[in-house]
């Protein structure tokens, strides 16, 4: 049953790459939805699920640019693994801390992608696209966490907000 959920995540990543990224892009600044999904798995699931899903998600998200596929696999797997271990070491439970870890992960992923794809224009691209993109992604992640995950966990724990 959980495999179907992961498959749907992969479909969502493909949907994002084909349609959603362009539709939600503001002045060239876009959401890194695959990073939100992959790092959320790292924050809430086991290590095995984290690395395997990171591998699958990286393959799907970089299918349009096969030359960066290996880089994306390495970046996604290593960042997810780092988030997973940080979560385990720090025993992260609070929503704010989880979001902070996710945003740091997104920032690292965006920066590495930028360094790989446009190294010559790194600082300008960083200021113009990567940092705003990270903030944009963080805001979307906050919405997702508060609306979807918050509601889900409150229902499970019986707490009403």
């Amino acid at each position: 049953m959980r495999a179907i959920g992961y498959l749907l995540y992969l479909v969502l990543i493909a949907f994002h790459e084909v349609i959603f990224r362009g539709a939600t892009s503001i002045a060239g600044v876009s959401i890194n939805l695959p990073a939100i999904i992959v790092f959320s798995v790292a924050l809430f699931r086991s290590e095995a699920e984290t690395v395997w899903f990171a591998l699958a998600a990286a393959l799907v998200m970089s299918a349009g640019t096969p030359l960066s596929m290996g880089f994306q696999v390495l970046a996604m797997v290593l960042i997810s693994l780092a988030i997973y271990h940080a979560r385990e070491q720090l025993n992260v439970e609070a929503l704010v801390t989880q979001l902070a870890m996710l945003i740091v992960g997104v920032l690292i992923h965006n920066s590495l992608t930028l360094a790989f794809t446009k190294p010559s224009d790194f600082w300008f691209q960083m200021a113009r696209f990567t940092l705003p993109g990270t903030i944009y992604t963080g805001a979307v992640a906050y919405l997702i966490y508060t609306v979807i995950i918050g509601r889900f966990s409150s229902r499970r724990s019986g707490v009403s907000y």
Binding site: V51, W52, L55, A58, M69, G70, F71, V73, L74, V77
Partner: peptide
């Protein structure tokens, strides 16, 4: 997995 990534 890392070797697979490097191979890619």
């Amino acid at each position: 997995i890392l070797l697979f990534g490097i191979a890619l």
